[in-house]
Amino acid sequence: MTLQLPKKVEIIEVGPRDGLQNEKAFIPTEAKKQFITQLRGSGIKELELTSFVSPKWVPQMQDAAEIVSACLDENTRNIVLTPNAKGVERVYMTDCKAVAVFVGVSNTFNKKNINKMTDESMDELAPIIKELKASGYFVRACISTAFYCPYEGKMEEEATIRLCRQFVDLGVDELSVADTIGMAAPHEAFSLFSKLKHAFPHLLLTAHFHDTRNMALTNIFAALQAGVTRFDTSAGGLGGCPFAPGAAGNAATEDVVFMLERMGIETGIDLTKLVQAIDVIRPHLSRPIETAYYRLSQTEKV
């Protein structure tokens, strides 16, 4: 008996947005631009560039317009996160053609994050998504607290699937389903993603795991077994959410790529160049890079 593994997996790099948003000290815009350029150079084909959110709530993203202006690339899917109509209006002022919207399954998380209940958020987003699709945009729906919430605890699978279905009915191109606080266990990842693959077999389905409890890689393996071939990851394991207490960084791109390539799964990413991209942003971070592959790469340099 052999494992059921895909030949190829798509990596969506979220480091420049999700990875940096929690950094309290402002990272120079030029460093962010170089980070993005180096990530592309490693073979990344899809990435979250930044987010059009209020600088009052997420100061790190205050240079979003400049990042988008300087960093669009025709060979890459360049995604900009937007929380509301105001954010989408800013996207319309750029040449970016891929937008991410987000809603939490948990009402409490959603309220703390964007000051709206989940249903209120969906009511606001419905016409926005329809307009984006009518205008030819790629729309990515990010589902936060899909497994657990820091305030409400465990989310019911049916609640997550129901929210995903609302987005699918609105015509989104992709669902990015997130274990926001890194609480999910592999059997839960396998169960939810198996049901989502069955419910939406023709939609782009992406798994987004945080490594709070060192289970991101095992959850990715479980999601692979459920048929998922797209994963959000962050170079250097950077990340965390300002509105999710205890959430650690995302699954580290370098560790995920190493694991997948060792299993014979193609990612198209050059690990040496990926480490060079991490080296660019590392001096500007508030904490050291401690991912397994990155530590090993530094040892081999000595």
Score class of each variant (00 low, 15 high):
2 T>H: 12
6 P>N: 05
6 P>V: 06
11 I>G: 14
14 V>D: 08
14 V>Y: 01
15 G>K: 02
16 P>M: 12
16 P>Q: 08
17 R>E: 14
26 F>I: 13
27 I>Q: 09
32 K>C: 03
34 Q>A: 14
36 I>S: 00
37 T>M: 12
39 L>P: 06
40 R>T: 05
40 R>V: 00
41 G>S: 09
44 I>L: 01
45 K>Q: 12
49 L>F: 07
58 V>E: 03
60 Q>D: 04
61 M>C: 08
63 D>Q: 03
67 I>V: 15
69 S>Y: 08
70 A>V: 04
70 A>P: 06
73 D>N: 12
73 D>H: 13
73 D>A: 06
77 R>D: 07
78 N>M: 08
78 N>R: 05
82 T>W: 01
83 P>S: 01
85 A>L: 11
90 R>V: 13
90 R>C: 10
95 D>E: 15
97 K>G: 00
102 F>D: 05
103 V>S: 09
105 V>K: 05
107 N>Y: 01
108 T>W: 09
109 F>H: 08
112 K>R: 13
119 D>G: 13
120 E>L: 08
121 S>K: 03
132 L>R: 03
133 K>V: 06
141 A>Y: 09
147 F>H: 07
153 G>N: 04
155 M>N: 11
157 E>V: 11
165 R>F: 03
165 R>K: 15
167 F>W: 14
172 V>R: 07
173 D>A: 00
175 L>F: 08
176 S>F: 02
177 V>C: 05
177 V>G: 10
179 D>G: 14
180 T>D: 03
185 A>D: 15
187 H>P: 11
187 H>C: 14
189 A>D: 14
190 F>L: 15
193 F>R: 06
195 K>V: 10
200 F>W: 04
204 L>Y: 05
204 L>N: 09
206 T>F: 00
206 T>L: 00
206 T>G: 00
209 F>M: 10
214 N>K: 15
216 A>K: 10
221 F>Y: 14
223 A>K: 06
225 Q>Y: 10
228 V>Y: 09
230 R>T: 00
231 F>L: 04
231 F>G: 03
236 G>E: 04
240 G>W: 02
245 P>L: 08
247 A>W: 07
249 G>C: 11
253 T>V: 07
259 M>V: 01
264 G>P: 02
264 G>Y: 01
264 G>M: 01
265 I>N: 08
266 E>Q: 15
269 I>G: 01
271 L>N: 06
271 L>R: 11
273 K>C: 05
274 L>K: 05
277 A>E: 00
279 D>L: 07
289 I>N: 09
290 E>C: 12
291 T>L: 05
293 Y>H: 09
300 E>H: 12
301 K>S: 13
